[in-house]
């Protein structure tokens, strides 16, 4: 992956496929550490699956024999001296409180730290493809906080207009880009 924002898009798509209705994407930047946390309320993983999930030759897919999403994120984190951890609660064991949390830390000053890239485009792509899910995005840094909660947008739009309506997607794009631009001025 050429951008961390693509890893984020990929991992969040996994949450969608796990049946999550609420997906959280948090980025927390301190002076030289970036922490990425993706949480969902999907079906979760059994302890057996969880053990194999960072093995690139393990996948639950049937279209191919490799599963590279989490191994690629793990590699991206570890090559900066950071790490990736996953906790998961499978629905059979935790029927009321299931889901998965993927956390990765990156040392941002490391020469091998992958650039963030176009995170706004990744968030908008997730919403475009999954207008029936809720996404909560928060990017905290010393410059400020960029936030988006699709539940708030849905409250305004009601049932008439889906979140992937083109004008709504444009509004979301500009809403996020304006927040990032405001940070740069600080």
């Amino acid at each position: 992956m050429k951008e961390l924002s693509l890893n984020i898009l990929d991992i969040a798509e996994n949450s969608v496929k796990a049946g999550a209705t609420l997906i959280g994407i948090e980025l927390d930047e301190t002076e030289n550490i970036l922490t990425l946390r993706i949480t969902d309320n999907g079906c979760g993983m059994t302890p057996e699956v969880l053990q194999s999930v960072t093995d690139p030759f393990y996948t639950t897919r049937t279209t191919r024999k490799v599963g590279l999403g989490l191994p690629l994120l793990k590699l991206a984190a570890e090559q900066t001296g950071g790490k990736m951890t996953i906790t998961s609660r499978h629905e059979t064991l935790f029927p009321k409180d299931h889901g998965t949390e993927v956390t990765a830390t990156f040392q941002t000053q490391h020469i091998d730290c992958t650039p963030m890239g176009d995170i706004v485009s990744s968030i908008v792509t997730l919403i475009q493809g999954n207008p029936d899910r809720e996404f909560v995005f928060r990017h905290k840094s010393r410059r400020g906080t960029v936030e988006l909660d699709t539940r708030q947008l849905r409250d305004v739009l009601g049932a008439d207009v889906p979140l992937n309506n083109f004008e709504v997607l444009q509004w979301i794009t500009e809403f996020l880009r304006e927040q990032y631009a405001g940070e740069e001025k600080l």
Binding site: L9, D10, G129
Partner: peptide, 27 residues
């Protein structure tokens, strides 16, 4: 838009179709 597609550049392709369909009023 699986890992393979995203890594190979599917995101801008998707955006191009979404924007193009709207621009050409094909929605």
């Amino acid at each position: 838009m699986a890992t393979c597609g995203i890594a190979a550049g599917a995101r801008p392709v998707l955006n191009a179709f979404v924007e193009g369909v709207n621009r050409e009023a094909l929605g």
